[in-house]
Amino acid sequence: MHALGWVAVGLYAAAEAMAIRSLFRPKGLGAAPALVAAGLVAQFLDLQLVGRSLGSVPYRTLGGSIALFAWMLGLAYLALVLRHRERAIGPFLIPFVLAFSVLGVVLPSHAPSGPATRGSLFAFHVTLAILADAAFALSFVLSLLYLIQNRQIRRGRTGVLFSRLPALEVIGRMNRTSATIGIVVLTVSVALGVAWARRVWSGFTDAKLVWALLTLLVYGMMLWMDRRGWEGPRVALLSIFGFLLVLFSYTFVNLYLSQAHVFR
């Protein structure tokens, strides 16, 4: 089981090594994007196999949802690299793809599927939620890069990181795009989730919903303050804080606070 999932993990690990190596070369993207692309194909096939045995997209299980998250993050990396020829992001982003892929393979991916988790409304709700989380993860990595680059510029350290990382303006722009996508997608996902829950549950107050609204609030504030004088490190810190909320929702809230609303 999951042979292809492990293949993907291996490819991502190789991609990370190549991404770091290319950072120390003056030119060229290196083999990292191609390796990630191959990893994405392997992971996609793995998800398909799992999905076929479950009879649906494998988002209902904890392992499946995390694997799907990793896959979307990998896709986002590829898009960024090909769109902006930005090789400095790889070494920082691929580790997340790698870590979540490992979790996706290791964590259980077979859950009894109750009637509550069928239907396209539900499928869209979960898939979009995972996509939103991938967008926030990207924004998190970009914010780290922003802080690093900001520090390098302030201290006049014009070394490898300085020359490889994009300009602050460019990182900030990519960050805004990711956060905006995350907000829009999460909003749709929450709306679908609420609509679906109305049908299945009889009224609810759910910790995960509260957490999602909090997340939206933080990212909304980040975008708002970006144009109201906080452009710079503060916006990056807000994004990092937002992603901590996402992680907390994924782990702690998922496991302890929410009753019906979990990945198993």
Binding site: P26, I153, T158, V160, S163, L165, L168, V170
Partner: peptide, 24 residues
């Protein structure tokens, strides 16, 4: 293949390089 020509030596070039990394 090397960085021997990458890092500028003149004050003006360094200033422009730093500004470039802020504004793109």
């Amino acid at each position: 293949e090397t960085e021997i020509g990458v890092h500028p030596l003149s004050i003006a070039s360094i200033g422009v390089e730093l500004a470039n990394k802020v504004f793109g």
